[in-house]
Nucleic acid binder design. Sequence first.
DNA 1: GGACTACTACGATAAGCATCGTAGTACGGC
DNA 2: GCCGTACTACGATGCTTATCGTAGTAGTCC
Lengths: 119, 119
Amino acid sequence: MTTPAPVSAGSRRLPHPPREEIRLETVLQALSDPMRLSIVRELAAGGDELSCSHFDLPVTKSTTTHHFRVLRESGVIRQVYRGTAKMNGLRTDDLDALFPGLLGTVLDAAGRQAARLGG
Amino acid sequence: MTTPAPVSAGSRRLPHPPREEIRLETVLQALSDPMRLSIVRELAAGGDELSCSHFDLPVTKSTTTHHFRVLRESGVIRQVYRGTAKMNGLRTDDLDALFPGLLGTVLDAAGRQAARLGG
DNA sequence: GGACTACTACGATAAGCATCGTAGTACGGC
DNA sequence: GCCGTACTACGATGCTTATCGTAGTAGTCC
């Protein structure tokens, strides 16, 4: 018993809602914030394992943490620690099972709007 | 000049955002409220011309007015006066042009969730 | 162990929003 | 013109939330 249970990179556990507790209204609300929608767009585009520090958002670190927590607690993203970094990925499987096509259509809509407004 | 411009049922004009000003984030936020989502579901199911008083929501009239205004100002519904009644309809054409499939997918997701949770 | 990195927790603040009650306006019918 | 119906506008209230700064924790590397 030198160390009771090292657990290494898993000691910091993050609470995720199980699939059956994910609510549509909460997901929509999570996606309705411009900052969070851009995070989700970047996650969808840039593969599925991005660290928090990869995102360069025009807010402080505290606020970034807040937005990632909202996304995680709504069931939109999954977060795991890997060393000092926290890796983020979309819960595509769960969302597609619950709300088929929703994530895709929202991402498509966001892309169209960005193309229309941003150039 | 008996009457300068009677306008009859059109004197009370309601401000609607033009199609090109409808923003995805605003639409998602409008749909993220349970009360408003149920209004939209009922509009989608019950044809497209329902008066405000048709809805029996567990809130006061003032609050109902507020929710309908949020839906109108976000671009989700269209409202016109017809006599003393105010008729409501989804802006399906505009939404489908801007965000193809979005409204349908959200309504489908809401239906699935209702079936899963409500029975 | 000590320094550095990455992220978090907590408290504060200011803005937003869902809700209500009351008072008021527009329209239709008598 | 008068009354009832349908909806609105306004102000208040209490809750949620987006933001920040500071202080702190967990992990990596030397």
